[in-house]
Amino acid sequence: MSRTTPATLALDKAGVVYTLAAYAYDPNAERVGLQAAEALGVAPGEVLKTLMVKADGKPACVVLASDREVSMKRLAAALGAKSAEMMKPADAERLTGYRVGGVSPFGQKRRVPTVVDEAAAALPEAFVNAGQRGLQARLSPAELVRVLDARIACVT
């Protein structure tokens, strides 16, 4: 497994302090973030999932704890939109340059508005996908907000 991805290159360029952790990715896992948390031996709330969505038809990204569900109504409001919906996996892969299960909020092919759930943003450290299935970066969510110029909102 390569530890150099567009995500890690973006983190390095932004001067973010992080550590990498690899785990055995299970392509058959029902919920990838929960499987990652179990494999890493941490609480599910410490592993953040990256979801690609459409808000009023425009792409956006939302980052929240792997054991939480996003409220599309709250997410739409946070993005100043009337509605939001999950992006189709093929569209997310094309837009980000990552495969589903390995989508990172960092180093995407095209930068899109990003919202970080307030509970995730309040954590001192958390894991976020590092751009490859089975590779996570442990960092301060405050750095995620800073680097991505993300909005913080309650989206659960």
Rank of each mutant, 00 (worst) to 15 (best):
A22Y: 00
V63T: 10
K109C: 03
A92M: 06
A84C: 05
L40S: 06
K88F: 02
V63F: 05
E143F: 12
K109H: 09
A90E: 11
E69Y: 03
V116P: 04
E38S: 12
P89C: 04
T5L: 15
F127P: 04
S140T: 13
S83T: 13
A21C: 02
P44G: 13
K73F: 00
K13S: 15
R31S: 09
P6G: 15
A122M: 11
Y18P: 05
Q108I: 09
G102H: 06
L144V: 13
V100G: 01
T4W: 07
D149I: 05
A76L: 04
L79P: 00
L75T: 01
L95C: 00
A65G: 15
A37T: 08
P27E: 09
A29F: 07
A81W: 01
R138Q: 13
A120S: 15
M72N: 04
Y98L: 08
G131D: 08
M87Y: 02
A153K: 01
V147C: 11
T156K: 05
S71L: 00
L144M: 15
L139H: 10
A29N: 08
V42H: 09
T50Y: 07
L48P: 08
A7R: 08
G80M: 04
P6M: 12
A84K: 00
N129P: 11
K58F: 08
S2C: 08
K58C: 04
R110I: 07
A37S: 10
A77H: 01
A78Y: 00
D26S: 10
P113C: 04
P89T: 03
P105V: 11
A39N: 10
V47N: 02
V145T: 08
D56T: 02
G33I: 10
E118W: 02
V116Y: 06
D149K: 15
P113S: 05
K73D: 09
E143H: 15
R133D: 06
R68H: 12
L75Q: 01
S2P: 12
A14F: 14
E38R: 15
G57F: 06
R94A: 13
G107D: 12
P59D: 01
D67K: 07
A142W: 07
A90S: 11
V147T: 11
V147E: 10
T5R: 09
G134N: 07
G134E: 06
G97S: 10
R151T: 13
K73C: 01
P6R: 14
V62M: 00
G41K: 09
V16E: 12
K49A: 06
S104D: 12
T114H: 11
E30H: 14
G101Y: 08
V100Y: 02
T19M: 01
A55S: 03
A77G: 08
R74L: 12
K13I: 08
A92L: 03
T96R: 01
F127A: 07
L40A: 02
G80E: 06
V17C: 06
A121D: 07
Y18T: 08
E85H: 02
S104C: 14
V103L: 14
A60I: 03
A21S: 15
V63I: 13
G131H: 08
T8I: 05
L148G: 05
T8K: 11
A65S: 15
G57W: 03
K49W: 01
P89L: 03
K82H: 07
A37N: 06
Q35L: 04
K88A: 14
R3N: 11
K54L: 15
R151C: 05
T19W: 06
V145I: 13
